[in-house]
């Protein structure tokens, strides 16, 4: 840590080496954040078991300052979407995401959360959580091993390192817009898609569509 913190481009006199550290605000801020990411205690499916194993003694998330899992979204920085996202569960996930305080990150753990995985074709399965909320890191695997999850978390730390106070969205004047919560209708409906749905369901069927439907 000292190596990266202590090289802001200013020369420290020899007699003050080891006493004084000069750094940039971005670096010290990110250094603090990257080493105390609190994940949400939130398991969806098989991947949650590997997430628990990652937090347990053998793989030990505490080495990265991430062992503090909080069940309340208000106290968390990171949502690990660990498992298959179903249509029935998506409204709750979006609501949880909206409740998280910024800065917040999302890690899609495993094939299902990233893109539907083996269950993609299922009628109740969402093809990846990124259809609804923004994802920062994707971890492949079914389920990813604890090592793979750790790798993904290190990647997230690298991403945090790159961020700058000047640019991050969460210090803008207004709070960011919450993501509209999907509604369970005859199928899952994203309020952002209502116009598109209506175009499709309320317009008279064109011959081209009819051909597609019957095909």
């Amino acid at each position: 840590m000292s190596e990266s913190l202590n090289s802001p481009g200013y020369e420290i006199p020899d007699e003050l080496q080891g006493t004084v550290a000069i750094t940039t605000l971005d670096r010290i801020y990110n250094w603090g954040r990257r080493n105390s990411i609190w994940p949400m205690m939130f398991g969806l499916a098989c991947c949650a078991i590997e997430m628990i194993c990652t937090a347990a003694s053998r793989y030990d998330l505490a080495r990265f300052g991430m062992e503090v899992m909080r069940p309340s979204p208000r106290q968390t920085d990171l949502m690990i979407v660990s498992g298959t996202v179903t249509k029935k569960m998506v409204p709750q996930i979006v609501r949880l995401y909206n409740q998280m305080a910024e800065p917040r990150y999302v890690l899609a753990m495993g094939a299902c959360a990233s893109g539907g995985g083996p269950f993609k074709e299922g009628y109740n399965v969402v093809s990846g959580i990124d259809k609804y909320i923004p994802v920062d890191v994707y971890v492949p695997g079914c389920p990813p091993t604890p090592q793979a999850l750790l790798h993904g978390l290190i990647k997230l730390q690298e991403k945090i390192d790159q961020q700058s106070l000047k640019e991050v969205p969460w210090y803008k004047k207004a709070p960011s817009e919450p993501i509209p919560v999907p509604v369970l209708g005859p199928d899952i409906m994203d309020p952002r898609d209502y116009e598109k749905i209506k175009q499709f369901t309320l317009q008279p069927v064109t011959p081209v569509q009819e051909e597609e439907l019957s095909a």
Partner: peptide, 11 residues
């Protein structure tokens, strides 16, 4: 997306 809606449905 993995969705389909019946004809005539108004969300």
């Amino acid at each position: 997306k993995n969705v389909k809606y019946p004809q005539g449905f108004d969300p």
